[in-house]
Simulated assay, not measured.
Amino acid sequence: MAKGTSEAADVTPRRGRPRSVETTNAILESAYALMAATGLATTNIDAVARHSNVSKMTIYKWWPSREALLIDAFLHHAAQMLPLPPASSGTPLARARRHAAAYAEALQGEFGKVQLAVISECISKTGSAELFYARYLQFRRDALVEMIAAGQADGSISADAPAEDLYDAIYGSLFYRYVFGIAPITPAYARTLVDLVLRPKG
Rank of each mutant, 00 (worst) to 15 (best):
Q80F: 08
E22G: 07
D154A: 10
L196D: 14
Y103K: 05
T58E: 03
R19M: 14
R135T: 00
D168C: 12
R191L: 02
T23A: 12
A188C: 02
I45Y: 01
L82T: 06
F175K: 09
Y178W: 14
E22Y: 07
S30E: 10
D154P: 09
H77V: 07
S20Y: 04
A106P: 04
R19F: 03
A104M: 04
V197F: 06
W63S: 00
A150M: 06
V21S: 14
G112D: 10
S128T: 14
L174W: 10
I185P: 01
G90C: 05
T24I: 02
E105H: 00
P64F: 01
T126I: 11
Q108R: 15
Y133D: 14
R135P: 00
I71S: 05
G4L: 07
R19S: 15
L198K: 02
A9Y: 00
L28F: 03
K113T: 13
R50F: 05
D168E: 15
G112K: 13
A47P: 04
V114I: 11
T38L: 08
D160A: 14
F111Q: 04
Q80L: 11
E22L: 12
N53Q: 13
R140C: 03
V114Y: 09
S65T: 12
V11A: 11
G202A: 11
P92S: 08
W62E: 03
P83K: 00
